[in-house]
């Protein structure tokens, strides 16, 4: 099963290492990862796609929760969240077939972001299945390079990752 987690972390050096290190140390595999500064900018937000049975999801969420620099962990549900990732495709296209290629791209709402004499670059966002379908159709024309960003995810509606954040703790309380 495929799972998607958003992790809100302090925007500090070394934090990514801690998060990714936890995955490798406990031999959990990451399918895709994307990291970026978020609002407010003292946080970074990491989106992780990974495979695993429910035991693994449970352990990952708990182990992430133990990292002091992790402020919140949110597990997304495909029904209630949107996922987006971007793909850039560089394809061979000359005067004879450029129009065909452009037509296919249009069907998939891919944008042209660079045109050269012999090549085109498309940008397409959306879910993996859509991108794979486009790639399949373009293959006969000669794909030169493909790059995908990791996907990012947001829950629809009022729910935000901040709802999942732990309470602030003070030294005087909870001292063992």
């Amino acid at each position: 099963m495929k799972h998607v987690l958003s992790v809100l972390v302090n925007n500090q050096p070394g934090v990514l290492l801690r998060v990714v290190g936890m995955f490798s140390r406990r031999s959990f595999n990451i399918d895709s990862l994307s990291v970026g500064v978020t609002q407010p900018n003292k946080y970074s937000r990491i989106t992780i796609f990974f495979q695993g049975e429910s035991y693994i999801v449970d352990q990952i969420i708990k182990q992430l929760g133990k990292i002091p620099d992790v402020a919140a962990v949110q597990l997304h549900n495909p029904e209630t969240a949107v996922y987006r990732g971007m793909t850039l495709i560089k394809i061979r296209a000359n005067d004879t077939n450029r129009l065909d290629v452009l037509k296919i791209a249009e069907l998939f709402r891919a944008h042209v972001i660079d045109v050269q004499k012999t090549t085109l670059i498309f940008e397409i966002t959306g879910q993996d299945e859509k991108v794979s379908a486009l790639l399949q159709l373009l293959t006969p024309y000669g794909i030169l390079e493909v790059i995908r960003t990791g996907q990012v995810a947001l829950e629809r509606g009022e729910k935000t990752i901040f709802n999942c954040a732990g309470k602030t703790a003070f030294y005087s309380k909870n001292l063992l």
Partner: peptide, 12 residues
């Protein structure tokens, strides 16, 4: 005197 760690509460 106090500390504030958003991700860690030491909760028990």
């Amino acid at each position: 005197a106090e500390i504030c760690l958003r991700g860690y509460t030491g909760k028990y």
